[in-house]
Amino acid sequence: MDISVVVPLYDEIESLPELTSWISGVMDNNRFTYEIILVDDGSSDGSWEMIRKLHKNNPFIKGIKFRRNYGKSAALNVGFEAAEGEVVITMDADLQDSPDEIPELYRRITEEKYDLISGWKAKRHDPLSKTIPTKIYNAATRRMSGIHNLHDFNCGLKAYRKAVVKNIEVYGEMHRYIPVIAKWAGFVKIGEQIVEHRPRKYGKTKFGISRFINGLLDLMSIFFVGKFGKRPMHFFGTMGTLSFLAGTVMVCWIIWDKLYAIAHGIKVTRDVTAQPLFYLALVAIILGSQLFLTGFVAELVSRSAPERNKYQVEEVI
């Protein structure tokens, strides 16, 4: 099979007939073998009944239904597991992504040998309340991930080589950072393609202000797990050692200052414990010890994990 199109959806009954018809038309015109996987993320508007109807009319349309709403990341992860195509395309169900982009995305994956192509909606039809925070997050993600050639990490329209989706796990709200997850997994040939961003035709957006807070937390989480997931002691141990050393230096300074005053007959106007530096040193030493012990415990947990020696193997001869 050439292409699997994975479409996560939540209450998008109006757009499904038009979207699937459009995708099927593009596939037939380009003579692609394909499947359309519609993942219903707990819709309550009759979307699943519509998917059943579409499947009866077109056997290339497949459906997966969640019992409740789990989120876009869960829908994508399940869709990735079910996908059988050599190239996997993801797009949103609201008709803001154009299926006409599929042939070029497929060509770049198969001919230019990219692992992942991410869409870039250079001209957006969104309010400033959405576009400005998006630009900030994209800039922060570029800096933290080292993927400097992507402008829009969260674009729903992406193309993947099959090996990518079968070797990554998307959870929480990590769908915003799939290129970062792919890079940490060893898929480093990541490209970008300018795509059309169409105005929403039906319904309204399902994302609120919480997406920006969650996006920041997920970015911090994925950066830490990707960099220190298999060696947590390198992070906690380093921070703990630095804090402990800083506290020790402050304690040595306090002791030296006290001894110097005694040796030279200088009258000390206040006790050691009356100095703010004493409490800063005490906090630094305690915090350093706790961080070091946290790293030690995390290292034990990591070494006991069943996937402690699971690594990405590209080829064996």
Rank of each mutant, 00 (worst) to 15 (best):
L259N: 12
N214A: 04
N154H: 12
I213R: 13
V165K: 05
S243L: 15
L259F: 14
P179L: 00
K204D: 01
T241M: 08
I262H: 06
E173N: 14
G237T: 09
A140G: 07
L242P: 06
V180C: 01
T248C: 10
K189V: 09
A182T: 05
I190D: 04
L242D: 07
V165L: 09
F187Y: 15
A182H: 04
D218E: 14
M174P: 01
D271K: 10
A263M: 10
W256G: 13
W253Q: 12
F223P: 01
G186K: 06
G247E: 03
G156E: 08
E173P: 06
P232E: 04
Y171S: 03
M220L: 15
N154D: 13
I136R: 04
R176K: 03
Y260H: 11
P179V: 01
A182W: 03
K204G: 01
V268S: 14
I254G: 03
P179E: 00
K158G: 02
S243Y: 05
D218Y: 10
T241K: 10
K183T: 06
G186R: 10
Y260K: 09
M250T: 03
T141K: 06
D271T: 11
L245T: 07
Y137H: 12
V170Q: 01
A263N: 10
S210T: 13
I266W: 07
K166I: 04
M220H: 08
V225N: 11
M144W: 07
I262W: 07
I181Y: 00
N154E: 13
P199A: 05
Q193L: 15
N167Y: 00
L259M: 14
M250C: 06
L242Q: 07
R176Y: 01
W184M: 05
I209W: 15
L150T: 02
H148I: 11
K201A: 14
V188D: 05
S145R: 01
H148R: 13
H148F: 14
K158C: 03
A159V: 05
L242V: 12
R200L: 13
N167C: 01
G237K: 09
F244E: 10
C252N: 11
T248A: 15
Y202I: 11
F236R: 02
I190H: 05
